[in-house]
Design a protein around this nucleic acid. Structure first.
Length: 217
DNA sequence: CGAGTGTTGGTGCGCTCCTG
DNA sequence: CAGGAGCGCACCAACACTCG
């Protein structure tokens, strides 16, 4: 079909993001015609731009949900442990592992979050990959095809990284802030929303797996 | 009314894993 | 190790919709 497959380069992605920042979303023709971005985007159609931007937003949303989820678990652990001098990291990890994860969960270890301040999330969230079979789980992790989207220092996940970093920074501050409880409640509310979304997604997945038709409102 | 954009559905390529 | 199967990604076409 038509043009050969052409992976999105970091230059194209950067040009798209700058173009959207300058012209706004939906103004694909304007972005393409802009001499500042045209050298990078002339080979892409307006549909290509729209689809790829949708992909970026989806990736961003996934990262945000994951970060909120982790933060909620941490705050709940802190509240539950209720140590006068603040719970130490190992205690928080133990609480989370005992109360949020089972042996069967195929979910990244929460320790990674505490140790690496969210930076592991994007690497473990291998967006777009299949759920591994038990046999595949025994094998080494499958490399992601589009490494442009994963490599550190690139532009695709920079926004997500920035968001993750900001949340992690807020999290660290909350550890020493006297208003940690307030923050905990706020994040818990966000986590509830995130969990609702996850539950909805699970229900849809279940219905789809049973062959039922799902109508989105 | 025409240009531009959004949505939907489909096709083909390339990669990875499985099997014989 | 070669070939097939499965899957995700990138792309395209047709149609609907919006806006100036």
């Amino acid at each position: 079909m038509g043009n050969p497959k052409q992976k999105w380069t970091s230059e194209e992605e950067e040009a798209l993001r700058a173009g959207v920042a300058k012209h706004g979303t939906g103004k694909w023709k304007n972005i393409q015609r802009d001499p500042e971005f045209n050298p990078y985007l002339y080979s892409r159609s307006n549909i290509d731009l729209k689809v790829f931007l949708s992909f970026l937003f989806f990736l961003f949303a996934i990262v945000i949900v994951a970060v909120v989820w982790y933060n909620a678990m941490i705050f709940e652990a802190i509240s539950a442990l209720n140590e006068p001098n603040g719970a130490d990291t190992s205690a928080i990890i133990s609480y989370i592992e005992c109360n949020f994860f089972t042996d069967d969960d195929d979910i990244p270890n929460p320790s990674a979050h505490l140790v690496q301040n969210c930076y592991k999330i994007k690497k473990s969230s291998s967006f777009g990959t299949k759920t591994p079979t038990p046999k595949q789980k025994e094998m080494r992790p499958k490399p992601v095809q589009n490494t442009d989207l994963i490599n550190s220092g690139d532009t695709v996940t920079e926004a997500a990284d920035d968001a993750a970093y900001m949340v992690a920074e807020a999290e660290n501050k909350s550890f020493v802030a006297t208003e940690a409880v307030k923050e905990s409640e706020r994040v818990s509310k966000m986590a509830e929303d995130a969990n609702s979304l996850l539950q909805l997604a699970s229900e849809i997945l279940e219905k789809c797996s049973r062959g039922e038709i799902v109508v989105m409102g």
